[in-house]
Amino acid sequence: MSELLGMAAGVGSAVIGGTAITGIRYLAPSTDPFTLAAIRFGIGVCILLPIACLKNERWPALRDLPVVAGLGLLFFVLFPVILNGALIWTTAGRAALTLATLPLLTMAVAALMGAEPFTARKAVAAVIAFSGVAAALAGGLRAVPAGAWKGDLLMLGGALFLAFYNIWSRKFIVRSGPLRFTSVGMGVAVPVLLLAAWMVDGFASVAAFDRTKAWAAVYVGVFGGAAAYWLWAEAIARTTPTRVAMAITINAVAASAAGAIALGEPIGWSLVLGIAAVAVAIGLATRPDRT
């Protein structure tokens, strides 16, 4: 049951995060990447921290705080910067497809570190999920901008960072609790992001937001900042790193669907095929391992 709850949390995180990408796309032309990340995680930590204080979980131990802080900077500062940098060179579709290699990368890293045994079934599930994302994004992959390989390589590096995060963070999440672990990591990252936003004068752009943009920012913070990352930590605590990583493949599919609904972006049979393939892959990955 814990495994199924973990996968459900991972899928929920990916779906919520995918819909939040629509809001991020809407806001991106109006501000800079650092300010957008500061808004997202600033709102997120303001929601999570009070709930964490009320929830019956352990705070990260004093001896764990340096590692928890480092993981927070990796997850909430470094990876968003890598993602934003990659999108300078490559398209959103290509970046999402590259991120869909996360299950395969996590599987390889987990096997090398002895954190999780390699199984052919999980490998097949990862390949099916990757193929489903490729099908869903097929239309957007036709246009290849000059220098796209630089963004693709940067995004691959970001996916590798996430693979290590999934593995390294698990024992610290289990020692404390998903909500308090996430709150501390996000709380460490937000001052860094606020300082970066201040240095690029990002707050001036926020002051110019109209009501629609303000509500979009609230949505990105509440759902893309608080809910999605809390659920991701819950997933890591309850199931294996590879199964958690499998859920990320639905992120791009959810983003495509939300973009079609909210922004009028094109939708076709490729998206339906992608959703079906990812569903099959997740179902295959969640089958219990034989002992």
Score class of each variant (00 low, 15 high):
1 M>E: 06
21 I>C: 11
25 R>A: 13
25 R>G: 11
26 Y>T: 13
32 D>H: 09
35 T>P: 02
41 F>R: 00
42 G>L: 01
43 I>W: 02
55 K>P: 08
58 R>Q: 13
61 A>R: 15
61 A>W: 03
64 D>E: 13
68 V>T: 04
70 G>Y: 08
71 L>D: 04
72 G>K: 03
78 L>T: 11
78 L>Q: 06
81 V>E: 11
89 W>K: 03
92 A>P: 13
92 A>M: 13
93 G>V: 02
100 A>I: 08
103 P>I: 07
104 L>E: 07
104 L>K: 08
105 L>N: 12
111 A>Y: 13
112 L>H: 11
115 A>S: 14
120 A>N: 08
121 R>S: 00
121 R>T: 00
130 F>Q: 01
131 S>F: 13
135 A>V: 11
135 A>R: 05
143 A>Q: 08
147 G>I: 04
148 A>C: 05
151 G>P: 00
154 L>K: 01
155 M>V: 14
158 G>F: 08
159 A>T: 10
161 F>R: 02
165 Y>D: 02
167 I>P: 05
168 W>S: 07
168 W>N: 05
171 K>Y: 11
175 R>P: 12
178 P>G: 11
180 R>D: 10
186 M>K: 03
186 M>L: 08
187 G>H: 06
187 G>A: 02
191 P>C: 09
195 L>K: 05
204 A>F: 04
210 D>C: 04
213 K>C: 05
220 V>S: 03
222 V>Q: 05
225 G>F: 03
227 A>V: 15
227 A>E: 12
228 A>G: 06
228 A>M: 14
231 L>H: 01
235 A>W: 03
238 R>V: 10
250 I>H: 02
260 A>R: 02
270 S>W: 11
274 G>I: 12
278 V>N: 03
278 V>I: 15
281 A>G: 10
283 G>E: 03
284 L>W: 00
289 D>K: 00
290 R>A: 00
